[in-house]
Design a protein around this nucleic acid. Sequence first.
DNA 1: GTATAATCGTTTCAAATGAAACAATTGTCA
DNA 2: TGACAATTGTTTCATTTGAAACGATTATAC
Lengths: 175, 175
Amino acid sequence: MSKPRENGPPLQLDRFVPYRLSVLTAKITARLAREYEKAVGLPLPEARVMTVLGSFRPVSSNAVVQHTSMDKATVSRAIARLIRLGLVTRKPNSRDRRLLVLDFTPSGRRAYARLARLAVSWEAWFTAEIPAAERERLLRTLARLNGRLDTAASLPPARILVRARPRPERPAKRP
Amino acid sequence: MSKPRENGPPLQLDRFVPYRLSVLTAKITARLAREYEKAVGLPLPEARVMTVLGSFRPVSSNAVVQHTSMDKATVSRAIARLIRLGLVTRKPNSRDRRLLVLDFTPSGRRAYARLARLAVSWEAWFTAEIPAAERERLLRTLARLNGRLDTAASLPPARILVRARPRPERPAKRP
DNA sequence: GTATAATCGTTTCAAATGAAACAATTGTCA
DNA sequence: TGACAATTGTTTCATTTGAAACGATTATAC
């Protein structure tokens, strides 16, 4: 009578999605950051901002934060440096003067072109071994998981944590 | 004759695997870190080390680094704090005294049990909307990509960047 | 209308990070 | 054997980070 708590399924680390994602992403990010630095001379936060600009320009600083999930202070500082480097311009939106919209300078556009070529060819190399269909499925799954985090609130705490009995079998399809 | 450089395919950010991975992983990590902190009182690096210990114990500090791709200084500090908290022990391996092997204390084992339950149920919630087969495919694809980074050296620079003509069709199988 | 709340972006400041140097140990090669 | 290289883990130190406070602007409530 001394162990009132069932254990539930164990944590299998190498089948734990957050773990697999974070390990893989850490490796990718480290490599790609080196490539960016070497080829374009920009550290990762700046390179990320440039990348977002290339796809969604003109955008506000806040939009960059939404797109990347970067911290807003980090984005703010990266933008300041890009402006100092002469790669990006910033002007207030006349309808809402809280918004500062960003765009490329001509030299920023050229830097982005190099950056984009690097990104595309790195990804081509990186995914060379997996077939196109698998890559599509990966992107779709990532999008679904992403949506899960945007819409749904959060893990309902407790209760689930102490579920004592194994969950029932799934009912047969079309009951 | 003034544009000697072909552009190649453009960078579509929302179909760019490193981007999708890093955005999703950032969100997951932020949420999970909050959960860990709330439920077990451990910051992310410590929680990660505990998680690795739970699956691969006993291990050396360096093994934790290999498993997680964390920085070795971060791991070293996290372990020091876990020891100070009385959750982890460390003793030198007698065959190779450079190796300090880590293991749980009894209270560390209990903390891990809570941590693991939290992780499992959070992932269950997180992946509730995607079917099991899709989750399997995701794990397989992530493993393949991971292997790509472990084995292959690196992006062969240049040349590919300026490829002017579309790549030839793949030759038919078994030539 | 005015007061109050919310949003955008910057800045401050303590804490975390990571590159490099380091001590300690073991491996390698002559 | 002995010299030199490689590995493990820690520590130092400059840089980066991110939470919180902030000023400026706009939206909402009354």
